[in-house]
C-alpha cells in the first residue's frame, strides 16, 4: 500500500475574532474555522472540495499550502509538514487563487514567466518545453507580450494557470479556478486540468462554487460545513444516495387535480403543469409516462435529472447531527 500524497489528521484552525459589543467594550470570541478534519488524497486523484461560504474551504487549502499554521492536528503533503518546510513544498506544488493576482501586475506575461523560471530554478530546456505546451493548450500567444494589468479575466486565469504549472508541480491547489470566466474559458481551463491529470499524473484539489467544475473534473468530492467534513466519497454514490428521486414534468391539456399514479407522487402543481417525483430504482421513466398518459391527456413531457446542486442542498438541509461524522460514500 502506498502512502497517500496528502494526509490530514484531526486538523483544526481557530481564529480569534474581536467583536464590538459596546462603545468601548469588545468581546473576544474564538471561531473554529476548521474543526477536526481528517482525510487523505492519493497521488493522481482529482478531488473537489466544496461547501458553503465560510465553511472553512480556503482555510484548509491555506494550511495545506503552508500559508497558515494549524491550531492543532497533523498535515503531510508529499511527505512534508507544510509550514515547517514551506519553500521546499512550494517547489512541488502549484497554487491558483481565483481572483487574486500572482503575476507581476505591470510586466508583460512572458516576463513574469521568465522570472518565475528563475524563482523556481526551472532548467532552460524544461522551461522551453513546458511553455510551448501551455502556449498551445491555453492559446497564450495573442497576449504573451501584454502587461498583466491589461489582460481580460479569462486571459489572466490562463496566464496564472501557466505560472502555477511551469515548474511541473506534483499537486495543484486551485481555489475557485473558474470563477468569473465565461463558458468557453471555463471549458478550456477544465480540459487543460483533465489533461494535466491524465498525462502527467498531477494531483488536483480544487475548491469551487461551480458544481459544473466538479461534475466535469472530480470523481471524488469532500463536502465541508462549519469546518467539519460531512461527506467524503464518490460523486456518483452521493447522487445515488441523496438524489434518487427524478422528476417528470407533465403539461396536461387542461388543469386537473393532482394525478394518482403508482410509483409517482405529485410534488407540485401549477395550472395544467404537474411535477411528479419518482424513485428511478423502483420505476422506469417509460413505465411512469405510460401510467400518466393512461389517466390523463398529456400535451408535453420533460424529465428532470437530479443535479449536484440539489443533492448538495439536501445534504446541507438534512445534516441534523454533524457530530455524527462524515457520511462515507463507497
Amino acid at each position: 500500500m502506498t502512502v497517500p500524497l496528502i494526509e490530514v489528521d484531526g486538523l483544526r484552525k481557530d481564529f480569534a475574532v474581536t467583536r464590538k459589543t459596546g462603545v468601548l467594550r469588545r468581546a473576544r470570541a474564538v471561531v473554529h474555522a476548521v474543526d477536526g478534519l481528517t482525510f487523505s488524497v492519493e497521488r493522481g486523484e482529482i478531488v473537489g472540495y466544496i461547501g458553503p461560504n465560510g465553511a472553512g474551504k480556503s482555510t484548509t487549502v491555506k494550511m495545506l499550502t503552508g500559508i497558515l499554521v494549524p491550531t492543532a492536528g497533523r498535515i503531510s503533503v508529499g511527505g512534508l509538514v507544510p509550514t515547517e518546510r514551506r519553500t521546499e513544498l512550494a517547489r512541488r506544488i502549484g497554487v491558483l487563487f481565483g481572483q487574486r493576482v500572482q503575476l507581476w501586475w505591470d510586466l508583460p506575461l512572458i516576463e513574469s514567466f521568465e522570472l518565475l523560471r528563475h524563482m523556481y530554478r526551472v532548467g532552460a530546456d524544461r522551461y522551453r518545453e513546458n511553455l510551448a505546451t501551455f502556449r498551445e493548450l491555453l492559446e497564450l500567444d495573442p497576449f504573451l507580450g501584454t502587461p498583466v494589468r491589461q489582460l481580460s479575466l479569462g486571459q489572466r486565469v490562463r496566464g496564472e494557470l501557466t505560472a502555477a504549472m511551469l515548474h511541473d508541480p506534483e499537486i495543484l491547489f486551485l481555489d475557485e479556478p473558474t470563477i468569473g470566466l465565461d463558458i468557453v474559458a471555463k471549458q478550456r481551463v477544465r480540459e487543460f486540468l483533465l489533461r494535466a491529470n491524465r498525462e502527467h499524473g498531477v494531483t488536483v484539489l480544487l475548491t469551487t462554487h461551480d458544481l459544473a467544475d466538479i461534475e466535469r473534473l472530480a470523481r471524488r468530492i469532500l463536502i465541508i460545513d462549519h469546518g467539519r467534513l460531512i461527506y467524503d466519497g464518490e460523486l456518483e454514490a452521493l447522487k445515488r444516495r441523496f438524489g434518487p428521486r427524478r422528476v417528470l414534468v407533465v403539461d396536461l391539456v387542461e388543469p386537473a387535480p393532482p394525478l394518482r399514479v403508482d410509483g409517482g407522487e405529485v410534488v407540485r402543481t401549477d395550472g395544467p403543469r404537474q411535477w411528479i417525483a419518482f424513485d428511478g430504482d423502483r420505476i422506469t421513466a417509460a413505465a411512469l409516462i405510460a401510467a400518466v398518459t393512461a389517466v390523463a391527456a398529456v400535451r408535453d413531457l420533460t424529465l428532470e435529472e437530479p443535479e449536484i446542486e440539489s443533492v448538495v442542498r439536501e445534504i446541507y438541509a438534512g445534516r441534523a447531527r454533524p457530530e455524527a461524522g462524515p457520511i462515507r460514500g463507497s
Partner: peptide, 13 residues
C-alpha cells in the same frame, strides 16, 4: 488583502 498569501507559496524567503 491576502497578497501576502502568494508570497508564502513561492520557494523564496
Amino acid at each position: 488583502n491576502g497578497t501576502f498569501d502568494g508570497m508564502l507559496v513561492r520557494p523564496r524567503g
